[in-house]
Design a protein around this nucleic acid. Sequence first.
RNA 1: GCCCGAGUGGCGGAAUUGGUAGACGCGCUGCACUCAAAAUGCAGUGGCUUUCGGGCCAUGCGGGUUCGAGUCCCGCCUUGGGCACCA
Length: 814
Amino acid sequence: MSTSHPVPDEGPIYDPTALELKWQRRWQERRTNEPDLQAATSPFYQLMMFPYPSAEGLHVGNVFAFAGADIHGRFQRLQGNSVFEPMGFDAFGIHSENYALKVGGHPMRLIPQNIGNFRRQLRRVGLMVDWKHELSTTDAKYYKWTQWIFLQLFKKGLAYKKKAAVNWCPNDKTVLANEQVENGLCERCGARVEQRFLEQWFFRITDYAERLLHNLEWIDWSESTKSAQRNWIGRSEGAEISFAIAGNDGPPLVVFTTRPDTIFGATYLVLAPEHPQVAAITTAGQSAEIEAYRVRTAKQDVVSRKMGESAKKTGAFTGSYATNPATGERIPIWVADYVLMEYGTGAIMAVPGHDERDFAFAQGYELPIIRVVAPDDSNANAPLAEAYTGDGRLVNSGMFEGVPATEAKSRVTEWMVGLSAAKPVVNFRLHDWTISRQRYWGPPIPIIYCDDCGAQPVPEDQLPVILPEIEDFRPDDTGISPLARHEEWYRVPCPKCGKLARRETDVSDTFLDSAWYFLRYPSSDFDSVPFDQTITRKWLPVNSYIGGNEHAVLHLLYSRFITMVLHDMGHLTFEEPYTRFRAHGLIIRDGAKMSKSKGNVVNPDEFIERWGADTFRTYLMFLGPFEEGGDFRDAGISGVRRFLDRLWKSAHDAHTDGEPDLAVMRKLQQTIRKVGEDTAKLSYNTAIAAMMEYMNVLRASERDAHRAEVEPLVQLVAPFAPHIAEELWELFGHEGGVFESRWPKYDPALVTVDEIELVVQVNGKVRGKVQAARDITQERAMSLARGDAGISRFITGEPKKIIFVPGRLLNIVV
RNA sequence: GCCCGAGUGGCGGAAUUGGUAGACGCGCUGCACUCAAAAUGCAGUGGCUUUCGGGCCAUGCGGGUUCGAGUCCCGCCUUGGGCACCA
């Protein structure tokens, strides 16, 4: 196959479309992308976040993410690993359901169409995906095990039911997610959103908060993602303090505070309107006002209730008083919607002097404001113009006068613990995970309600609970799931006593589907277990996971939680699912995120058709740092194509006469090292630049390359542009594909150059460069510098100081 | 408001982590090839200035540390993303 000399000028034309289809077909025939999961000796699990198969098809953002992950997977393969790179579809959920309603179709028929389209597009990108292990969360074979996972949590007491506030759109007759509410209006229809209380299933993720937080210290993840999780979990230390209610023998009011040191400044208490003790506390005279206030806040949607920053704080007085355990003073008890039932105890001690919200509220209702913390230099009794949240010493605080606030936190808590008025507690911002969805398109929650036996789990051997195909899956005004209207499905015998009972009609959240999919891929051909123990031990945890930071909290946190639970139940040997996670950046266009409303969406099909998948993949990676994303501009793609054209030509024109050029071979060694290092750390843009640079050397002055100069470059380019690499590898006469080969080794002796350009500065300014040996001494360098006319003219006096960085720089200070 | 991140030529972006700022690519200019154009190849390309040797200015703005700062420190400005009454 080696080319004879002289080379004919006209070689075959680089036709990416034909060539790419040829290799995609051949990979399929040869099962190139299907590692032997049982026998693999050096398994490497390269995971990418599976897509939601929308009707619009694959998005450039998807291609960017998948190509980036694929390049890493292919690189690992060239390092000699057996790489498993699976793909699947996250196809349940409200998006699919709403889309089906909109076009008047049924998700059971629409989803397969969308998946088919996605699969076709994904194949065209040339990913190293093992399609034998493809999965869809909507497949009963898959969601059988999603339901199984629900049952495991139920068994362990981690799944429970309680009433919770949800956003309800009266027009669409449905529960909305927080992100579907904009300024209190439904994102889709514009109707005013209400708050409703519905019975919902929850997972007790808060039981795992401490562990989820703690493991972040050691897992190898992008810092930005870890920090997002830390903030989301939101651990805060403080105390619960009990306030006795004056003239009321009932239980005391318990508040949570992170500032027990400010207790002497607590001039009133505030309860959330939904707080269970509100009714008991309210006096007869105030009950009408309190009731009116509660009705008013209940009408608000959940989101705008929490968005009150700019809005005026409102509230109502209960008529009752509590006793401040520190001062013994009577302080009024109020109800206000700025206190949330979900956080802490749903009640706070208000310290208006040192909390902005309390300050605003106290001003509005003319409640007393007392300063109890003062910076060292200020007057303790000067009136406050705004809440002081800074550091300082306690004032107006009885026996704690003058104690630094930071120190006072624990001292005041200890003192009150002694009075049985407080206990130290840790609180988390993280809430339990709402699993229920009052919708149709999801896996039914496997629970049966019996009048005698209560909520019973569906026995595991009766899974899956099949989602029935019903034509009328439109949600209605009742807030009850559409499945409840399907009588023959809804009525079932109780698994315990056999009496007629009713199925749970809620389906589960899509985040549950995706919380465990990585466990299923390697075991997708096992029907009797969710994941096979031997295979799982071999392939998991995932070696490399790449995905977007839009899933930094929910998906990644939920899948960590589910993994921990399964670990604790003995189903898994590890408790963290992803050894290494890297967040990729966002592809933008014209300075903005691509979106239909902005009209700046790029259709990947057109680009692949015009330029080829290899060029498109490589171009996307060349836009900018993979972990930061980049700006997509049509213009730049021609440069990448030109690079591949030149590679094509170089390979076809390569000769085998004589020896390769030493200078070129040196550059090649440096390139092998650079591309290897950069690709490993996902610095794809600089890896590509290094290959282009080498190409410029290779073809400088229209020289024809020696085959030994080109062949390794074909391997370097293979992760980025796998099709052309295969074709050229075959051209060079190799029997197996390029991905059967090993990443080229570089010769360390050739990487380092002996002759260097030593930079000479005078007073920190570059004044010249001298050719010198790499290991030149300072003395020798000085005399070279003095001998250089361009440099010596700046050396106006005796050197005061000489800085010499061996092999790099000489700086003469005069 | 809070938490992350980013500001470098006409443009996308490099810079061994304190040591030649602008790699690589796009665009632009010139030349070669061509009847011509496209494609391709070669050369040039931060700004100002120059007696053509060079000189000065330049990494969002203002200070500082250092022989030396895009990189470190202090104070601002702009911008992208995420979260949001979390007590």
